[in-house]
């Protein structure tokens, strides 16, 4: 496979893997919590790296996922105290964990691949160079396999817990009353968000993962009124954004993940403005129409 095709394939798999849990983050209004997680998992990676001294150890994934969950738990505990507003709780926890991770990296891990630039931005262009070899066979880029497995895990979870995700998101009190614990589903979803974030670190970097998670899902949310269709549109948008992002990045010879994020942001904004159902443009038209009709009514009465 040519390099651009390999990179495109990785980008598509990363984009879909991120976008799937993104659907439920958007519906739960938890996009900023996911922003926090996608950064704080770095602390887990660093801590696990100190223990294992091996960047390829699966313990890194586990450590990162645990710190992701700790982030959610700490944010929610601070929110429950009612001492600060909800977004302030995120604003306390996220920079704290993230900056500890950055300091640890600069202090102790200076000589290894774990450097801040890679962590913040990631680099898809290098992904094809790290190959997965098994018994002498080249099985393709390692990150493709990692993200493919994560994509499968996310899809299986959403497939099997579709009804549970739906009812706990729409009406948590009712869901709890009929025996589907919203807390269990919430933490399961956050586990997947953490896991996905760690997997996508290499290729996309922490700053952009949240764009991959939120953008396509928002497009889906704005374009349709049905959860099934929303998931479908989200996946299609993830594919369109990543394929065109890779092409544009090659054309302009610039960062691939960054270009995909720019394309994602642009398509999402365009859809937000021009969506035929809920778009801002349509909203303005119907408001103007309503105002004209009201004016006519008033004139008639006068």
């Amino acid at each position: 496979m040519s390099m651009i095709n390999e990179i495109t394939l990785i980008a598509v798999v990363v984009a879909i893997a991120c976008a799937l849990p993104g659907v439920f983050l958007v519906l739960r209004g938890a996009t900023m919590v996911s922003d926090a997680i996608t950064h704080t998992v770095l602390l887990g990676i660093v801590l696990a790296f100190f223990i294992t001294q091996d960047l390829n150890s699966p313990l890194l994934m586990i450590g990162a996922t645990l710190v992701g969950l700790a982030t959610v738990w700490l944010i929610e505990t601070i929110q429950r105290s009612n001492l600060v507003s909800n977004d302030a709780a995120i604003g306390i926890v996220f920079p704290l964990f993230f900056s500890i991770a950055i300091i640890l990296i600069t202090f102790y891990a200076g000589d290894v691949h774990l450097d801040e630039d890679a962590v913040l931005m990631g680099e898809l262009a290098f992904a094809p160079f790290r190959r997965l070899d098994l018994w002498g066979y080249d099985l393709g880029p390692q990150s493709l396999w990692v993200m493919f497995i994560i994509l499968i895990i996310n899809s299986v979870f959403i497939f099997f817990f579709y009804k549970e995700l739906k009812v706990t998101t729409f009406d948590p009190a009712f869901a709890a009353a009929i025996g589907f614990s919203p807390v269990v589903i919430h933490y399961a979803l956050m586990t997947l968000v953490s896991l996905t974030a760690v997997g996508a670190y290499d290729s996309v970097g922490s700053i952009l993962i949240v764009g991959f998670m939120v953008g396509p899902a928002l497009s889906g949310y704005i374009l349709t009124h049905s959860l099934n269709k929303m998931i479908g549109i989200t996946v299609i948008m993830a594919i369109i954004n990543s394929v065109s992002g890779v092409r544009l990045a090659f054309f302009f010879d610039t960062t691939i993940a960054g270009m995909i994020a720019v394309v994602t942001g642009s398509t999402t904004l365009l859809i937000l403005i021009f969506s035929p159902k809920k778009g801002l443009f349509q909203h303005q038209i119907s408001q103007n129409r309503a105002r004209r009709n009201l004016n006519k009514e008033i004139e008639k009465m006068a």
Partner: peptide, 17 residues
């Protein structure tokens, strides 16, 4: 929330399922 009337009513069956 993106769902239909029928799907909300169906949630009443989830507990039995």
């Amino acid at each position: 929330f993106p769902t239909t009337v029928r799907d909300v009513v169906l949630m009443g069956r989830y507990g039995h399922l």
